[in-house]
Amino acid sequence: MGKKILLVDDSESMRKIAGKAISDAGYDVTTAEDGKLGLSKIEKEKYDAIISDVNMPNMNGLEMVKAGRMFASNKYTPVIMLTTESSDEMRQKGKEAGAKVWVVKPFNPDQLLGVLKKLIG
């Protein structure tokens, strides 16, 4: 059983692209379509890492990450934001929300896997 990753992105093709890259590397991937659905998964299950988009309907990725810290199961789970946003201001917001790494799309799959490896092995 591979380490468990929660991947949250509102774009189905992006979930497929990132999800396949991560699962091909041996991780066990669960996906969610927006921050609200992601948060309900964060509440119910412990993950080894969370990868999330920022701009999503219903609840954005930063709100989800912030709210997710309330649940003991994922209080310390490392979070990677995977987003088209690249401004310093947005990255600062990511840091405040508790994200560890900020990856800007279009991302290189090898880089994303390198980050995951560094964070959780």
Partner: peptide, 8 residues
């Protein structure tokens, strides 16, 4: 397509 990576 090397997305930038920032450790926060």
């Amino acid at each position: 397509a090397d997305g930038k990576v920032y450790f926060l």
